[in-house]
């Protein structure tokens, strides 16, 4: 499509977005009661209405934020991030690395090249870890779903808790001086002196936004639909306070237990958050639910095993241990507060 036409189309869609979003409640009622013709108040009807309302709402929010994040990300390449972080070997380095982890494009398949690229150009080990922990854990999909299901406070809590864990774990790994647990060949690598720098026009950046939108929706739509369907169904069928007995805040072991269950589980934010919603509704405490969610999204066994190529086993174990400890702290603190 011609760039100018594309801008017009995006502009029109953006203008249409808001009234549709605002009227979803009316629209979904109209579809369920008038078009399909179900009786209001009926248990099954309300489950269907919840689904018809929730799915487009999540997709609208997701589309908007992912599009804008795609544009924002085009300003932050891993190459630029690496240049910013070189030689920063104190807590400030960890803080910047964790924050940049949120905005720098990242996919788990590039964890190893990123690790190598950071280390060979002189980014300290602990700072590199802060980046690698924050990047997958704090992402726009997790934040949007949290915002949509639990409100902005919970989304912010998740973001800051994630930042805290990334900074804390990276800082500890840096202090412990574990460089000798990195595979020897990594530090023997020659630092490259070529740097790829892309020149992008504003049109290109908008294209990146559209591209991000297409990629991410294609990747997560099924998780979201299934997740919301499970949420809508479980709502009526699992007894109230069912989870309180094992995931309630009065049980001290609920946090470590949920981390133990969460780490081997592999799912993305889109798949896990609707499940977390059910857990919370059925009596799990916020700290425990947060801990469970973070250990599923942020620490996944398959992804950590890939790191075996560049890290020796003791470092992998230390890494999992310290991040779990950080998540546990977050869980306990929130159980204490709420």
């Amino acid at each position: 499509m011609e760039p100018r036409k594309k801008i017009w189309l995006i502009g029109i869609l953006l203008i249409l977005w808001y009234p549709i979003y605002l009227n979803l409640d009316t629209l979904s009622s109209f579809i369920v009661y008038n078009i399909i013709g179900l009786t209001p108040g009926d248990h099954l009807t309300e489950s269907i209405r919840f689904f018809v309302y929730e799915v487009p709402k999540v997709f609208l929010l997701l589309a908007l934020i992912v599009f804008f994040m795609g544009i924002v990300r085009s300003y932050f390449s891993p190459e630029k991030t690496r240049a910013l972080l070189g030689g920063k070997n104190h807590i400030f380095g960890n803080i910047s690395a964790a924050s940049l982890g949120i905005v720098t494009p990242f996919c788990s398949c590039s964890a190893i090249p990123l690790f190598l690229g950071f280390v060979e150009s002189g980014v300290p080990l602990g700072v590199t870890f802060s980046f690698l922990i924050a990047a997958p854990m704090i992402n726009e999909i997790a934040l949007i779903l949290l915002l949509e299901m639990f409100g902005w406070q919970t989304a912010l809590i998740y973001m800051f808790a994630g930042l805290f864990i990334a900074i804390f774990a990276g800082w500890v790994i840096g202090k412990l001086k574990l460089e000798h647990w990195v595979e020897d060949w990594v530090y023997q690598m020659q630092a490259t002196n070529t740097e790829f720098n892309e020149k992008l026009t504003f049109f290109d950046r908008i294209d990146r936004g559209v591209e991000a939108l297409r990629d991410i929706i294609a990747k997560v739509w099924l998780y979201i639909v299934v997740g919301i369907a499970v949420g809508a169904g479980a709502h009526g069928y699992i007894p109230e306070n069912f989870m309180a007995s094992i995931m309630g805040s009065d049980k001290w072991y609920s946090v470590p237990l949920s981390i133990l269950i969460g780490v081997p589980l592999y799912s993305n934010a889109a798949g896990i958050i609707p499940v977390v919603k059910v857990l919370l509704e059925k009596g799990a405490s916020l700290g425990t639910a947060l801990a469970f969610m973070m250990s599923v999204i942020g620490l996944s066994l398959p992804e950590t095993i890939i790191l075996k190529k560049v890290l020796k086993l003791p470092l992998i174990i230390t890494f999992i241990g310290i991040v779990s400890l950080g998540i546990m702290l977050v869980g306990f603190v929130f159980n204490l507060i709420y």
Binding site: S77, P105, P113, T192
Partner: peptide, 27 residues
């Protein structure tokens, strides 16, 4: 080879280069 890829100055794959000069990374 991952080491060769890094030597081209990129960290996101797939990458594309012409005559050794990178034109695209991570897309």
């Amino acid at each position: 080879d991952i080491k060769d890829i890094l030597n081209y100055g990129i960290m996101m794959t797939p990458g594309l280069g012409i005559e050794g000069k990178i034109v695209s990374s991570g897309r």
